[in-house]
Amino acid sequence: MGTKCGYVAIIGRPNVGKSTLMNSLIGEKLSIVTPKPQTTRARVLGILTEDDAQMVFLDTPGFLRPRGLLQEAMVREVREGLSEADVVLAITDATDLERTFDEELRELLKSSDRPAVVVLNKMDLVGQKEIFEGLKWLYERFPTEVVPISALKGHNLDELKKVLKGFLPEGPFLYPPEVLADQPERFFVAELIREELFLNLGQELPYATAVKVEEFRERDPSEGKTYIRATIYVEKPSQRGIVIGEGGAMLRKIGRWARKKIEAFLGRPVYLELWVKVRPKWSRKEAALRELGYLR
């Protein structure tokens, strides 16, 4: 019997646990996760190889009605993920099914000719009766394989992988078995810095920020330390002041926690230098979005 391999697009409304699920399936933190919705802005690719099957997951931004050029680019990422997928994995929230599996999302699934698997996520937050009723509710509205899981706790992920494997086409692996991702290290470094912005700043400010890694090199080979210089872009001078904080306290805090995460990800010591610059209306300018990697 030959090998099976295919792309699995993970889609869903904001904050339903898409990134948490991909990280749990891969066994490595590839997508940043915060309590704030719309943390994911670009597709993140994660590769899971087990025995005779390889699943290439595409973690897409939360599906929403776009307001502005940046969100339009995010929705385009979702639709492109759908078009590239061999199977679609739709994530719903067991505590909020009507919002997270509404008619608009169902129509998006129906518009694709790809097979779909629907996941009832956050099963750990509801009782057995609610799980049963949730599975019934989902199946009645979209008859397909429906699997209850907890992405955060890792519950029932083996069953989900078994179901997904059944939809994969036969074919050779696209990546060597030991490879977990195909994005460059710079991409993940920028994402880890952006994660700290979301975790440490207020409700709205993180959405006006972007991160670009300007320099990434071995500064002192004898120490084995990697030098990283990154710029945090904001849209207004007042936002720059908040990111820097009084006496630079906030920027130091963001840099300290980001450096620890980057060192854990890279597996080596890092010297991280952060700068904050004002770039007015960057989220509404096509050239800026292209430079920052949100448009291709």
Results as ranks from 00 to 15, higher is better:
2 G>C: 12
2 G>Y: 08
6 G>L: 14
7 Y>S: 06
8 V>Q: 09
9 A>S: 14
11 I>P: 00
11 I>K: 07
14 P>W: 08
14 P>V: 01
15 N>R: 06
16 V>Q: 08
29 K>D: 00
32 I>D: 02
33 V>D: 05
43 R>K: 09
44 V>H: 08
45 L>V: 04
49 T>K: 11
51 D>W: 12
51 D>Y: 13
56 V>M: 09
59 D>Y: 10
60 T>L: 12
61 P>G: 07
64 L>R: 13
67 R>S: 10
70 L>E: 09
73 A>L: 04
74 M>P: 03
74 M>F: 11
77 E>F: 00
77 E>K: 08
85 A>R: 12
85 A>G: 08
85 A>Q: 06
86 D>P: 01
90 A>G: 02
91 I>M: 14
94 A>K: 05
96 D>M: 13
97 L>T: 14
105 L>W: 07
106 R>T: 01
107 E>M: 12
108 L>I: 06
115 P>G: 05
116 A>G: 08
120 L>V: 00
121 N>H: 08
122 K>G: 04
123 M>Q: 08
123 M>R: 15
123 M>G: 08
134 G>M: 02
136 K>E: 07
138 L>K: 06
146 V>Q: 09
146 V>D: 08
153 K>G: 01
160 L>K: 14
162 K>T: 07
163 V>N: 03
164 L>P: 02
164 L>R: 10
165 K>D: 00
167 F>T: 02
167 F>E: 00
171 G>S: 09
172 P>Q: 05
173 F>Y: 12
176 P>E: 09
180 L>T: 15
181 A>C: 06
184 P>N: 03
193 I>F: 05
196 E>T: 14
196 E>V: 11
200 N>K: 13
203 Q>W: 05
207 Y>W: 11
213 V>F: 06
213 V>L: 02
219 R>P: 01
223 E>T: 07
224 G>K: 08
225 K>C: 04
233 Y>G: 00
233 Y>T: 00
234 V>R: 09
234 V>T: 13
236 K>Q: 11
243 V>P: 03
248 G>I: 01
252 R>G: 05
254 I>W: 15
255 G>I: 06
256 R>W: 14
259 R>L: 11
261 K>D: 06
262 I>Q: 09
263 E>H: 12
265 F>R: 04
265 F>K: 04
267 G>A: 00
269 P>A: 14
276 V>H: 14
277 K>E: 02
279 R>N: 07
280 P>Q: 06
280 P>R: 13
280 P>V: 04
281 K>R: 15
281 K>G: 02
283 S>N: 12
289 L>D: 03
289 L>G: 01
290 R>L: 04
292 L>K: 12
294 Y>T: 01
